[in-house]
């Protein structure tokens, strides 16, 4: 663990040094590509400007996650309980993933307005699929012997769901959620690019138009940190909930 962290830090350090050194050596103008040190300074010094936008984007992501969970979890359970429903919906769900989110964003702004709702929906759409698929696959991966045991015990659907299938699927669910929260930022920011009055995506567009590229990068840095924090939070939550993950069965 410590070794892998050191390797990550070393890789990041090498990339940043090459970036910093390259910009300085070749005299790249700041409005084309600012150095990492300038980006970090901007991210810190402009925090009072960036933080309110970040708060909006963060809220959109969190609400998007909540929306995705509210739809994906019951749908995964229904599709697991009724394989015919899974067979009927699967082609539509797969086809929906083939549609680029960029294509949806303008429509959502038209339908849901310039406010937070269209961005929440965008984030939700992106997170929904990995959560649904991972949870459904988690339910379906349950060992047949355990299923037989529960059937012989006379366990009904809900009891078997709570005592067996849900705990069984938890590692899959968290794997999907981890993927979901890291890509959720994409949905929210794309929504903000298309039409918004606040948020990190809005700040990026505005700064880019004014050639304040250091501020664009500072917003990206805040966004990356936000994704890392969400990923870390889900990872910690998984460790607290799925305490049996690495135990032999």
């Amino acid at each position: 663990m410590i070794r892998s962290n050191l390797i990550s830090l070393a890789v990041a350090g090498v990339i940043l040094c090459l970036w910093e050194g390259g910009c300085r050596f070749f005299g790249v103008p700041g409005f084309i590509l600012p150095t990492p040190s300038v980006i970090v300074v901007t991210a810190v010094m402009k925090a009072p400007l960036i933080a309110p936008h970040a708060a909006v984007t963060f809220l959109e992501i969190v609400l998007g996650i909540a929306l995705a969970l509210a739809v994906a979890v019951p749908l995964a359970m229904a599709m697991f309980a009724m394989p015919a429903l899974e067979r009927a919906l699967a082609p539509f769900l797969v086809a929906s993933q083939a549609v680029p989110v960029f294509a949806l964003a303008p429509l959502l702004v038209v339908w849901l307005g310039y406010g937070i709702a269209s961005k929440v929906f965008m984030a939700g759409v992106i997170i929904f699929f990995p959560i649904l698929v991972s949870l459904l696959e988690g339910f379906k991966s349950c060992n047949r012997d355990f299923q037989t045991l529960f059937r012989l015990m006379g366990g009904g659907f809900w009891k078997t769901m709570t005592l067996l299938y849900w705990p069984w699927a938890m590692p899959h669910f968290f794997a999907g959620l981890k993927v979901g929260v890291t890509v959720a930022t994409i949905g929210a920011v794309i929504g903000e690019w298309v039409g918004a009055q606040q948020g990190l995506g809005y700040l990026m567009i505005q700064s880019n138009a004014r050639l304040k590229v250091d501020l664009v990068f500072a917003a990206i840095l805040w966004l990356s940190i936000m994704g890392l924090l969400l990923w870390g939070f889900v990872g910690r939550l998984e460790k607290r909930v799925v305490t049996w993950k690495n135990n032999p069965m």
């Binding site: 012997d145 355990f146 045991l149 012989l152 005592l163 067996l164 705990p167 305490t243 049996w244 069965m249």
Partner: peptide, 14 residues
């Protein structure tokens, strides 16, 4: 009507 026990203990790790 039957209880069942098999080769694996089938204990749920959680």
């Amino acid at each position: 009507v039957a209880a069942y026990m098999q080769q694996k203990d089938l204990l749920l790790p959680w």
